[in-house]
């Protein structure tokens, strides 16, 4: 909206504009061409896709790569699995992150500093350190080979809590304070004042966590040995990282690998395009105050 309001003459000069456009164009090409290449290879025939070099245009269009991933690799079920656990998990995550974020904006809340550190430390723990015990934990909680396990592991991240908190800090605190004096309950203040104006923040957390959960590999690999509960990135990684050191033979053709990549990216891209306008507003990190 403000774009239109902007002063008419307040813009870059002609040559500057040209230069800016050129820089953007170069960046655009550098960032878009590899993906375009992946798309072209995914829609090429097997023979054409195994040729070395970079493909910018089709010389033999074919959808057999997509046929392969659905028929032979059977990606449909993993796709559904991923979609299901990611969506459910991230919705819960948004709610819980909003809760926690709200807690962290309370003025003179006892132990607030400690809580913040408690949250932030979790962002620094290397996975290798917890690898063994996370498995034992899941085993004790009977979360192995279950959708529940896939949903619960990685349910909360420090990052999304901090993101939510930062968004809440842009909301006027006095508004909540006056409502509190009027006798409104905490839950009511949270639900009626904070949540409605925090849509962009919620959307951002939703999206960022969707991306990371959708792509997560190590935990699902640990938790899931039932093939009917495999998730998409597991299949994708198995396709890309084929074990070349053994004398075994099975391997997926290049066009199928690229097709799998495109398929795995598509939902994220769609959500991104739809949510773009909210993301812009929601990504304002500001300062992490304590």
């Amino acid at each position: 909206m403000w774009m239109k309001k902007k002063a008419l003459a307040n813009e870059l000069t002609g040559p500057q504009k040209f230069f800016a456009g050129l820089v953007l164009l170069i960046i655009f090409i550098i960032m878009a061409v590899p993906m375009w290449n992946a798309f072209v290879v995914s829609t090429s025939s097997l023979l054409s896709s195994t040729q070395s070099g970079i493909k910018i245009w089709w010389d033999d269009f074919s959808l057999e790569g997509y046929g392969y991933v659905f028929k032979v690799t059977k990606l449909f079920r993993p796709f559904l699995n991923s979609f299901f656990v990611t969506t459910v998990g991230v919705i819960i995550q948004v709610i819980l992150s909003a809760f926690a974020g709200y807690v962290l904006i309370q003025k003179d809340l006892p132990f607030k500093g400690a809580i913040t550190s408690f949250v932030m430390l979790t962002m620094m723990i290397p996975g290798d350190l917890t690898l063994i015990s996370v498995y034992q934990m899941n085993k004790q909680l009977h979360l192995l080979n279950s959708y529940m396990g896939l949903i619960i592991n990685g349910l909360i991240s420090g990052f999304s809590i901090l993101l939510m908190r930062n968004y809440f800090t842009s909301v006027s605190y006095s508004l909540a304070e006056s409502a509190r004096i009027d006798g409104a309950s905490e839950l009511r203040i949270f639900a009626n004042i904070y949540l409605p104006i925090s849509k962009p923040g919620l959307a951002t957390v939703f999206f960022m966590e969707y991306v990371s959960k959708w792509n997560s590999i190590m935990l699902p690999a640990t938790l899931i040995t039932d093939q009917d509960k495999y998730t998409l990135p597991l299949m994708l990684k198995a396709m890309i990282m084929q074990d070349t050191s053994t004398s075994g033979t099975a391997y997926a053709p290049q066009n199928a690998i690229m097709a799998a990549i495109i398929i795995s990216m598509a939902p994220l891209l769609l959500i991104y395009i739809f949510a773009q306008q909210y993301l812009l507003a929601g990504m304002s990190l500001g300062a992490i105050k304590e």
Binding site: L131, V134, Y135, T222, T225, M235, A238
Partner: peptide
């Protein structure tokens, strides 16, 4: 039969150490 989809070594290590 159990078959992890990827990261076989890491998964095997966790499973064996986890008492499987």
């Amino acid at each position: 039969i159990e078959k992890p989809a990827s990261d076989y070594n890491a998964v095997l290590m966790q499973k064996l150490n986890g008492g499987e």
